[in-house]
Computed example of a mutant assay.
Amino acid sequence: MKAPVIEIFSSFQGEGLLIGERQIFVRFAGCNLNCNYCDTNDSKSEKSGKLMTPEEVLEEINKILTPDCKTISFTGGEPSLYPEFISEVGRLSDLDIMLETNGTLPNNIDRIERLDMVSLDIKLPEHFDGEFDEQILLNEIKSVSLLMEKSIKVYCKVVILPSTKIESFKEVVEKLSENISNKNNLKVIIQPSSPLSDWKDINFRLFDYSKVVGQYFDVSTIPQIHKILDIE
């Protein structure tokens, strides 16, 4: 069993609920989407990765493992393209397993045998050039629901761009609310896109986004801290 891996590195988690925690990141090559704000364009094609076995990945992880690191974060690209591979690394390692996913492949996510934390990106119409496929959102909602049913800790992250319209943002959040039964157990992270210098009047606009989400879910607004710290 092999999967295309671009890089394996140790850093601080710069996004979401585990922000500031030391993690080892395994970045896969290959993605099933083409978001216009992607900050890892080199990971979109599976051809850009080096084929590795789970044992080889674990060997590289152990080389850079430090006492302050408790979690492997699988990212990409789209890591859920490789569910059996992630399951095997999870079987071989005692570290917690985190998945950073777009959530559009619920059947694949369901096949990952061990997950301790999932960061799931909710996509907006402004994230794509061209018409927005509503099936993307429906699949993301399905992924959130199945993870919650399995009592796996999951939170949703929504990247907002300077071009994001409050109306389309509200529609997506409302759709998410209508289809998630246990809203009290789901946290939503609003993440303004980097660099923050691209924004005008960002403070006032962020309050508006937060108020929309707060009607339905627990909400926080967190920028990409690793970009501010200028680390990978």
Rank of each mutant, 00 (worst) to 15 (best):
N34P: 00
N34V: 02
C35D: 01
C35G: 08
N36L: 14
Y37G: 00
Y37R: 01
Y37E: 01
Y37C: 00
C38I: 02
D39V: 00
D39I: 00
T40K: 01
N41L: 03
D42N: 10
D42M: 12
S43K: 06
K44M: 05
S45H: 05
S48E: 06
S48K: 03
S48V: 00
S48G: 04
G49Y: 05
G49C: 08
G49W: 14
K50R: 09
K50L: 12
L51V: 04
L51Y: 12
T53C: 12
T53I: 06
P54W: 11
E55P: 04
E55W: 03
E56R: 09
E56M: 02
V57F: 10
V57W: 11
V57E: 04
L58K: 09
E59R: 13
E59Y: 15
I61Q: 10
I61F: 11
I61S: 10
N62I: 05
K63Y: 08
I64F: 08
I64T: 05
L65G: 11
L65W: 06
L65I: 15
T66Y: 07
T66W: 08
T66D: 07
T66E: 10
P67R: 06
P67G: 10
P67E: 06
D68P: 03
D68L: 14
D68S: 04
D68V: 05
D68Y: 04
D68T: 06
C69N: 14
C69R: 15
K70T: 14
K70W: 12
T71A: 04
T71N: 13
I72Y: 14
S73I: 07
S73M: 11
S73V: 13
F74C: 07
F74M: 08
T75I: 06
T75E: 01
T75C: 00
T75G: 00
T75H: 10
G76H: 12
G76I: 10
G77S: 10
G77L: 00
E78N: 15
E78C: 15
P79L: 09
P79M: 09
P79G: 11
S80Y: 09
S80P: 03
S80F: 12
L81T: 11
L81Y: 05
L81S: 05
Y82H: 01
P83C: 01
P83S: 00
